[in-house]
Nucleic acid binder design. Sequence first.
DNA 1: GTTTGGCACTCTGGTCGTTCGAGTGCCAGA
DNA 2: TCTGGCACTCGAACGACCAGAGTGCCAAAC
Lengths: 338, 338
Amino acid sequence: MLSERRLEVLRAIVQDYVGTEEPVGSKALTERHRLGVSPATVRNDMAVLEDEGYIAQPHTSAGRIPTDKGYRLFVDRLAGVKPLSTPERRAIQNFLDGAVDLDDVVGRTVRLLAQLTRQVAVVQYPSLTRSTVRHVELLSLAPARLMLVLITDTGRVEQRLIDCQTPFGETSLADLRARLNSRVVGRRFTDVPPLVQDLPESFEADDRATVSTVLATLLETLVEEAEERLMIGGTANLTRFGHDFPLTIRPVLEALEEQVVLLKLLGEASESGMAVRIGHENAYEGLNSTSVVSVGYGSGGEAVAKLGVVGPTRMDYPGTMGAVRAVARYVGQILAES
Amino acid sequence: MLSERRLEVLRAIVQDYVGTEEPVGSKALTERHRLGVSPATVRNDMAVLEDEGYIAQPHTSAGRIPTDKGYRLFVDRLAGVKPLSTPERRAIQNFLDGAVDLDDVVGRTVRLLAQLTRQVAVVQYPSLTRSTVRHVELLSLAPARLMLVLITDTGRVEQRLIDCQTPFGETSLADLRARLNSRVVGRRFTDVPPLVQDLPESFEADDRATVSTVLATLLETLVEEAEERLMIGGTANLTRFGHDFPLTIRPVLEALEEQVVLLKLLGEASESGMAVRIGHENAYEGLNSTSVVSVGYGSGGEAVAKLGVVGPTRMDYPGTMGAVRAVARYVGQILAES
DNA sequence: GTTTGGCACTCTGGTCGTTCGAGTGCCAGA
DNA sequence: TCTGGCACTCGAACGACCAGAGTGCCAAAC
């Protein structure tokens, strides 16, 4: 177990390193923080911290920098979440309030988050599987061609084309549309399948095949579109990464283009709490020198999607976590209102 | 007027510089290209080319590099468009053929273009103003709340919520829907306004206000959504930019996040022909050391949107232009089929 | 036992010169 | 008009050197 003072030393190291981006030595530490002990003592503490793997030195006779393990301890035990200032909060609210539709909400959120944290922001669109149905629409585009439109409570719209074997009359169409809506409107997507299972039976034999096709398409949409969309922004902040650019930045840019990777990253955020993945804790290799702070957001009490930021492990964790949490809350509010 | 040989020298310089990324000297030139003259002669030619502003030397006693003006001449008079190889063409076709919907088409196109050119790819979604209407749908979500859904021939879907002052009956709704569709389906978006202008008059007094609101929303959507969407990809290729990273790359990343800037860039592409903007020819300052190659693409003979790539001025113009043109063609085909 | 001051040691980073080589410009001759 | 030759320039690479920051360890003090 590390003594109180050693933890204090670790905290000081993290803070200084995050601020200066340079290895921090014992003397500088005692000067910038009121630790109440001499550099020599700090040196001893640092030696212990290094033995335990919390800090490391890039080379002999350089200061120390925190390791992933050190950041982890810092985040878990030494740092709180720094709440935003009132002006910041007001700015968030004002900015998000101007949004006109879902795309706009997500777009603004991404920009906001990027600006606030000065890092790369990632925002997932509200997921279909967790939302509820606001409306299902069926259109007849051609005699044997239908379009299915799905509208969610979060404002998302998905459409599918359906080719049916036999023409489908306008009356049947209206009928199906009405029945479909009466059964599924207001329901969560995951609850839909059993609710529509028996629908084909109530139609005439001629139409049954088409109805089945429509239902199949609907269910398919629910599943397939669980493949989520997301938006990223603030990539220009990657240039503040460090000195050793190309090598660090390239894999990150690559990762950011891989939706799958990003979704996995965000996916590790727990439903309500905030998740922080530091350096090697990220499964994806290219993100070994980055940390991901993510959290779920939702319109009600429940998370419908996630958002977060990706930045260097050397980041201001309390501030970042504060911003991420605050933004998530406000977005949730906005979604609930609309 | 520059002699034939001097043009040849310029071409050689451009080619070598693009290949090696290093200033090219007279000796190296004569060795790598069969110019049939001695280095001394080439030196004289280079002096002239420099006087005319086509090439420059970073510092005395270094080789020459092409200036923007030099690239311009190269593109205009010295280089053709390099057609893709047959395997490449086949790969494009195969890759694009797998697309399932519009998002997928655009997404695949962006990835393809980025991979082919090894640069940053930008693809604009088929523009609303140039597409035609496939269907207009009106849904009643609540007594005084409607949703307008617009479906284009390119598969794009736009939706708007409408709050109306007075409830709107189902029959009126069906009526409006029918009339609206009979008038605008198959029409180009730009042609729509005059076609629906007189619609309110044919409705009962009670409904007229709502009908007007709906039409206003429709027209508004047409205009507002002319604000186009686009997708970018291949940003990781920015790391291949040059040696002087952070400074060059940062403004580019910033520009890429500004949809407006990007749209303007693409916008300079003429309808059918390819546009190449070199270095300072780009209005946006941050892109002063990049070139943009763009071209329109469309489903019929007509361009519905644009796509292109952004890369260092030091790029392989013939190859890039070839790839951009080829991809645009295939995307056009795909859109026409679906 | 912990803390402290002192001291020797070890690195890295920056600053100079120096050298090396590529490339140029110019000139006189073919 | 082209060519070969030559002197000149300048950046990149190399090595030496120094200064500064930081460490580890030890013996003394608290």
